[in-house]
Amino acid sequence: MRDLSDLLENRKIIKSKLIDYGFNQDYVFEKTLSNPNFKAVISYEKDTLFSKVIDLEMDEDYVLVDVKTPIGKFAAELKIEYEIIITDIIEKCTRSNVFKLSQTKRLMDKVENTYNTDLEFLWEKFPKDAIYRNKDNNKWFVLLVALDKSKIGLDGEGEIEIAVLKHDNVSNVIDGVSILEGYHMNKKHWITVPLDERISDEKLFELVENSYNLIS
């Protein structure tokens, strides 16, 4: 069995998407290859994916599809088909995992579980910018960005992650520490919240709920 962790670096597996793709309730996906004597099996275990091809006639793993050294034409054709399946699953069932801070991850879990929405990376040139939107009207209510602290006027060096949220009383909530003026959005209607624990999760989630309600 092949461990696919190397292909999942900076990717997050979305379990619901695995089910949508065709994985069973044990998170195993099986597909008979063009040669019906062989079957690809992809499984989700321990927060990663594993794969193999089974020779159904011999009832054993067909390991030639996982070797990197040159192989014969027959095995090479099976390997191409097998790799296409793996690539398609990773493309459709995972997302970029560029956001690393603990509070950012808690925010992402909260938003996805509460509003049934997925993180979207819309801009190829900005791989560290992503949005959550209301699926009913396609309006954004959270912009997540990883950027240098200096870009939002914070002291110190290095990168920070922020949530940009809509607000209906911006002037009264900005404190210059835990809530800043909107980054890359209309500063009259949007605020920026650094996600480095300077604000409580409770308050952060209240701001997210308010942002969602304002665009709904």
Score class of each variant (00 low, 15 high):
Ile54Phe: 01
Leu78Ala: 02
Asp136Val: 11
Thr104Gln: 11
Asp109His: 13
Asp109Tyr: 05
Thr48Phe: 02
Tyr82His: 08
Val145Leu: 03
Arg133Val: 06
Lys46Cys: 05
Glu124Met: 04
Asn137Tyr: 07
Glu57Asp: 13
Lys135Thr: 14
Lys105Glu: 11
Val63Thr: 13
Lys110Gln: 07
Thr114Glu: 12
Lys79Asn: 02
Asp118Gly: 08
Val28Ile: 15
Met108Pro: 03
Ile80Thr: 14
Phe126Val: 02
Thr104Ile: 10
Ile54Pro: 03
Leu119Cys: 05
Tyr27Ile: 06
Asn137Leu: 06
Val63Asn: 08
Asn116Ser: 13
Met58Pro: 01
Phe74Ser: 11
Phe38Cys: 01
Asn138Cys: 09
Ala76Asp: 13
Phe141Ile: 07
Leu101Met: 11
Asp136Leu: 14
Leu101Val: 00
Leu107Ile: 07
Asn97Tyr: 02
Phe74Ala: 12
Leu107His: 09
Thr104Leu: 05
Leu64Tyr: 12
Val41Gly: 03
Asp148Asn: 15
Asp61Ile: 12
Val111Asp: 00
Leu107Ser: 08
Ala76Glu: 14
Gln103Asp: 08
Ala130Thr: 03
Ile54Cys: 03
Asp61Thr: 12
Glu81Arg: 09
Lys68Leu: 10
Leu119Ser: 03
Leu144His: 07
Phe50Thr: 07
Asn134Asp: 15
Arg106Asn: 14
Val142Cys: 02
Leu33Val: 04
Leu144Met: 13
Met58Cys: 04
Lys110Cys: 05
Val142Met: 00
Tyr132Met: 04
Phe121Gly: 00
Tyr21Asn: 10
Lys31Leu: 07
Trp140Glu: 06
Lys151Arg: 15
Thr69Tyr: 09
Asp136Pro: 00
Glu91Asp: 15
Leu144Lys: 09
Met58Tyr: 05
Gln25Ala: 09
Ser102Arg: 14
Glu45Asn: 14
Asn24Cys: 03
Ala146Ile: 01
Asn24Ala: 01
Gly72Leu: 09
Leu147Thr: 15
Val65Pro: 06
Trp123Leu: 06
Phe99Lys: 04
Thr48Val: 00
Tyr115Pro: 08
Asp59Val: 05
Glu83Gly: 01
Phe50Trp: 10
Ile80Ser: 12
Phe29Cys: 06
Tyr82Trp: 01
Lys68Ile: 06
Phe99Pro: 02
Lys92Leu: 10
Leu147Tyr: 00
Asp129Trp: 02
Trp140Ala: 00
Asn134Arg: 06
Thr32Arg: 12
Val145Cys: 10
Asp66Ala: 01
Lys125Cys: 01
Phe23His: 04
Asn35Ala: 05
Glu57Phe: 04
Val28Leu: 11
Glu45Tyr: 06
Thr104Pro: 12
Ser34Glu: 15
Arg95Ile: 08
Cys93Asn: 02
